[in-house]
């Protein structure tokens, strides 16, 4: 009972604090900022999607740090769960679900890849598409998990190599731009052709970074969930 009272008190205090903070924080960010972004993003980066341009051009180093976070999480989870004694879920699925998943899975993977590849001209990008790829792996693992590790779409070791390779490609692109005279992960300053905005081969290095981070995120999250399975 006392815990409920303490909980109610603290929650009410946090609510009052949040209300005071949010209403006392003055005006929202300057109204000219989004006009500025919309005007400059196409000339600066060649990408049409402002979010992808911010993630992979203006704040590319930030994205590299986030990929490192995923890498660390999957490494720690793999360390927590020794894969010698893998045990799978104790559920048995009906035939309808198994065949339905077999029909659905190719469409899901194609949708994930198209989200990655068209990330700079439409909503989406490396993170979203990568999570879709990993969720297709997860669905496959939940449905057909009886046979152990060998029955997943891609073997675990190959997933590890793809993840590390994508990370290395990301860093290698950064060093290539460094070598051409720009900054680390610079785009237009390296003299690379930006292409015509709105087409597939536009945006300089953004599509390649999209592909690398898509594989990185997808395989990283798939490794995380397989480590959870094998715990």
């Amino acid at each position: 009972m006392t815990r409920t009272l303490i909980g109610l008190t603290v929650a009410a205090a946090v609510g009052v604090l949040a209300m005071v903070t949010l209403w006392g924080s003055g005006p929202m960010p300057s109204a000219t900022l989004q006009i500025d972004y919309a005007l400059r993003v196409v000339q600066d980066t060649g990408a049409v999607n402002v979010v992808t341009a911010i993630l992979f051009d203006y704040r590319g180093l930030d994205t590299l740090g986030e990929a490192t976070v995923i890498f660390t999480a999957s490494a720690v989870l793999a360390f927590l769960a020794p894969r010698s004694h893998a045990s799978m879920l104790s559920v048995r699925l009906s035939m309808l679900i198994l065949y339905g998943i077999a029909i659905l899975l190719p469409f899901l993977m194609v949708f994930g890849f198209s989200t990655i590849i068209f990330g700079h001209v439409s909503p989406g990008g490396g993170f979203t598409g990568g999570v879709m790829l990993s969720s297709s792996v997860v669905i496959f693992a939940i449905a057909y998990s009886v046979g152990g590790q060998q029955s997943f779409v891609i073997p675990v070791l190959a997933k590890k190599y793809i993840e590390n390779g994508a990370m290395l490609v990301f860093v290698a692109i950064g060093f290539l731009t460094l070598g051409t005279g720009g900054a680390f992960l610079a785009n237009a300053a390296t003299g690379i052709g930006l292409g015509e905005a709105g087409t597939l081969l536009s945006g300089g290095i953004i599509p390649y970074l999209n592909l690398a981070s898509g594989f990185k995120v997808g395989m990283g999250l798939a490794l995380i969930i397989i480590s959870l399975f094998a715990e």
């Binding site: 993170f127 979203t128 999570v131 990993s134 969720s135 997860v138």
Partner: peptide, 10 residues
């Protein structure tokens, strides 16, 4: 899109 895939799925 990301919230739908991550939150409701993963």
């Amino acid at each position: 899109m990301t919230q739908a895939v991550v939150g409701a799925g993963l």
